[in-house]
Design a protein around this nucleic acid. Sequence first.
DNA 1: ATGGTAGTAGAACTA
Length: 268
Amino acid sequence: MESFKVATYNVNSIRSRLHIVIPWLRENSPDVLCMQETKVEDSQFPVSAFEEAGYRVTFRGAKRYNGVAIASRNAPTGVIHGLEDDGPPDDDRLITVSFPGIVIVNSYVPQGRDRESDHFRYKLGWFERLKHFFDSHWSADAPLIWCGDLNVAPKNIDVHDPKRLLGHVCFNPEVWEAYKNTTSWGLEDIYRRHHPEEPGRYTFFDYRVPHALERGLGWRIDHILATSFLASRSIACEIDLAPRAAEKTSDHTILMAEFDRGKTDGQI
DNA sequence: ATGGTAGTAGAACTA
């Protein structure tokens, strides 16, 4: 394979989304698919569905909320669950896998509920904790990808109605600052690298907005970021809207990035 | 300004 493909998908319950995830894996054959909101305990995770499609799957979940998983062609050489600091581990929100020459950090960043709430303060702190997580494990010149449902739309062009939505927990100056502080560790938004200043490109369409997908009423809150080593070797990054248009869909869709393997001296 | 739907549940919470 010439390229290394990484995708991210907030599935909103993996058991309710297998009819979309498994065919998508077969058709797109990414090397790695990061999933969020799997909403399943580890003992109930549908491992065999992935294995039958030719993927390993590494995961950590809880009964009703959160849950993260990573499907991969190859077995990871290392796995880290959670944030590994003095705070709540949040191992159902953060999972990291390593392969020879590449690290994949998959996160489901806390949504924040309400800007006045402790949940929002927790969200802001989470970005800071994540920056520390990166800093304590890796150098910014390592080949590393951070992806997932990051619950932040970084710019006006990342939401359909910036005036009305300003102040939302995923769209306000405080969350922009927290996100920017984390990315300042050395991570670049790969979608924007390939689609600079392009408005109207979204990964999330609220179930509660009638015909949100058809009307283009979405948010770009799922992201794939990479350190400069990988960013400079990225070939493409696209949002696939087909999963959102499918029957029994998640409210999110799939984002995928492709990296050139030939120029990495066999590192990935 | 509110509520809209979908998920896990088997009422109420989360997003």
